[in-house]
């Protein structure tokens, strides 16, 4: 499969009054045609900054310090503002967490979708209207002819999110970034949106980059997973591998600290102690070391390299997998950090 987007060593810092906040510290990922990948991490881990940078939406005081963003071979980190404008909403588009803040409250939703279309396509009013209807049907919007004349406040949360999806897809983007698309929704509505996005996969060719903190949503949608912590990718691989055979202690913690419906009854939960590091002065070693049950001396002072496992590029950046530590901590690795998995 053809690689659409390849991000290499992306480094982004925010230069604030308090100092340099190193939000993204060397991130690599790629996405291929028709694929859904997920970038998972907690708030403040840099996942949103990463995609904003790729989309060319990074704003002051943020600056790209290093790295390349190769979109079909073109480096977007060096692209002009005009070029990025031409790509935004056209070949790359984005869905946001809270549709209400991104929709214009005084404009009918049909017109908002049409505007998104006309921005990048020369078309007559009728053609645009036809396209709006087509795209509203694609996102299974109930009675689109009538509802395209509704204002955002007249629609429910789930319907507004469908409008956002429609706006993002109206120009047939190559890559769609979905930033926490279901976080603001109730579970029953979340299930509807997940189903919608999965059903879209069979109808259109768009590749999806899902940004979320919810492992449950990831399990439902993604083929490949990138786990991000404190501005770095700590583990990535095929969804199946990452869920069945997680390697990084952070991934262990993340997976086992989620309350699961299929877990047995009442009881204490697995958890990760402490708080993610302040990226104003990130720790010199592994960023997860201060919270890691299995941290070794070296973890506090040296960045771990990436280790690869088994088939299909499953990687984790953790000292536990170095030659020297592997044997000593075999039982830890075997039991995935003692968790009930």
């Amino acid at each position: 499969m053809q690689t659409l987007l390849k991000v290499e060593n992306l480094t982004v810092s925010f230069f604030t009054q308090a100092g340099e906040v190193q939000a993204v510290r060397g991130v690599d990922f790629d996405i291929r045609q028709k694929e859904t990948i997920a970038i998972v991490g907690e708030s403040g881990c840099g996942k949103t900054v990463t995609v904003q940078t790729v989309m060319g939406l990074l704003s002051n005081p943020g600056r790209v310090k290093d790295g390349r963003i190769l979109f079909r071979g073109e480096d977007l980190a060096k692209a002009s503002r005009e070029r990025l404008h031409a790509l935004q909403g056209n070949e790359m588009s984005m869905i946001f967490q809270d549709p209400l803040t991104y929709l214009n409250p005084t404009m009918r939703v049909g017109r908002q979708i049409a505007e998104a279309y006309l921005q990048h396509n020369k078309a007559t009013r009728d053609e645009a209207a036809a396209r709006v209807l087509e795209i509203m049907r694609l996102v299974s919007f109930p009675s689109p002819e009538r509802n395209m004349r509704a204002y955002p406040f007249q629609l429910s949360g789930g319907m507004r999110q469908r409008i956002m999806v429609a706006m993002a897809l109206v120009c047939n983007p190559v890559v769609l970034f979905a930033d926490e698309p279901t976080t603001a929704l109730d579970v029953t509505i979340q299930a509807q949106i997940i189903e919608l996005m999965n059903s879209l996969k069979s109808k259109i060719d768009t590749a999806i980059v899902l940004i979320t903190h919810d492992m449950g949503v990831v399990a439902n949608m993604a083929q490949r997973v990138y786990v991000m912590y404190a501005g770095r990718i700590v583990e990535h691989g095929a969804a199946q591998d990452v869920f069945e055979n997680p390697r990084h202690p952070y991934t262990w913690g993340l997976l086992y600290s989620i309350p699961r419906l299929d877990a047995p009854g009442k009881g204490a939960m697995e958890f990760i102690p402490g708080t993610p590091p302040d990226l104003l002065c990130p720790p010199e070693g592994c960023a997860f070391a201060p919270r890691c049950k299995h941290a070794m001396n070296i973890c506090a002072v040296r960045q771990p390299p990436k280790y690869t496992f088994g088939r299909a590029e499953h990687c984790a950046a953790c000292w536990l997998y170095s030659e020297e530590a592997k044997k000593t901590y075999a039982d830890v690795i075997e039991k995935r950090g003692n968790a009930n998995g």
Binding site: V187, D214, G216, V217, A219, F243, E244, R260, L261, D262
Partner: peptide, 14 residues
């Protein structure tokens, strides 16, 4: 419906 709408973090189970 509420119980069945909650995603479980395991692709196999899902």
């Amino acid at each position: 419906a509420l119980l069945s709408a909650i995603p479980i973090p395991d692709p196999e189970v899902e």
